[in-house]
């Protein structure tokens, strides 16, 4: 379990996260939703400890990191010890630009004993990336890069997988494929945390939904919180998404 207690993060004088408490469990999909600039990505980066929280406690499977006393740069959660503890698919994707897509997937595996050719081929088929493996990332669309980044992360068998806006450039068919694969990963025991604007994620997959606004978690719970939102901010957020659908219908 990953447990964060009283996490705060400032950038300069701007408070991005305010006293966040959150738990991420294995075999569970946690979806973080909220308006743009609410601190979702910062929360994800703090939970992975890519960004160091200014204060608070993060426990990953019992190992405690107490901030600000903990070491400024903790990276052992990404190291390979049989499998990886935390894996991330970034919002900006961040494939290494001078490696081919295939190298982006395989080079991290070469230092592990995880290079399972059949698993890789299976993922290549599922996510339809065979034709772009030899290409460099800049020669591919954003959606293709997103799929490569996802395969790269999954191949390292992370115990906890963090996905930041991973569906932003995928078409409906690929989103459906991704959903099914996430359900499969969850059944294998992976704890998945998803940051998204895409409410279908929350509606279809989430075991737990976390609504964050202006750096504070205002609501968290099962899917029911979307049916009966308690705070006006969450209601407003859900209404705004409804308005987008209504507006689109009106255009038609």
């Amino acid at each position: 379990m990953i447990k964060a207690t009283n996490i705060s993060k400032n950038f300069g004088s701007i408070k991005i996260l305010k006293n966040i408490d959150i738990e991420i469990n294995t075999s569970e999909i946690t979806v973080i939703i909220g308006p743009s600039g609410s601190g979702k990505t910062t929360l994800l980066n703090c939970l992975s400890m890519l960004n160091t929280p200014d204060k608070g406690l993060i426990q990953i499977d019992g190992t405690r990191y107490n901030f600000p006393n903990a070491h400024a740069k903790i990276r052992k959660q990404f190291k390979y010890k049989g499998s990886q503890q935390v894996g991330i698919v970034f919002q900006n994707i961040n494939l290494i630009p001078n490696w081919t897509n295939e190298e982006n997937i395989t080079k991290p595996l070469l230092k592990t004993n995880l290079f399972d050719k059949s698993e890789l081929n299976n993922l290549i088929d599922i996510f339809k990336v065979k034709s772009i493996l030899h290409k460099l990332p800049h020669q591919c669309s954003r959606g293709e890069q997103q799929r490569i980044a996802f395969i790269r992360a999954v191949m390292l068998h992370p115990k906890y997988l963090y996905l930041d806006e991973v569906t932003s450039a995928l078409d409906p068919e690929l989103i459906s494929i991704l959903f099914n694969y996430l359900i499969y990963l969850k059944s294998k025991g992976t704890g998945i945390i998803v940051v998204t604007h895409f409410l279908l994620f929350a509606q279809n997959l989430a075991d737990k939904i976390v609504f964050i606004n202006q750096g504070e978690i205002l609501e968290q719970g099962t899917k029911d919180i979307m049916i009966n939102p308690k705070t006006s901010q969450f209601k407003k957020f859900l209404m705004s998404l409804e308005n987008v659908i209504i507006t689109n219908n009106n255009i038609e």
Partner: peptide, 21 residues
């Protein structure tokens, strides 16, 4: 900085990041 983060998340250490990336 993003590429360093990306490499760290893939399990590369500092020396490997300098040498390989």
């Amino acid at each position: 900085r993003d590429y360093i983060d990306s490499a760290e998340v893939c399990g590369f250490n500092s020396n490997e990041i300098i040498r390989k990336i």
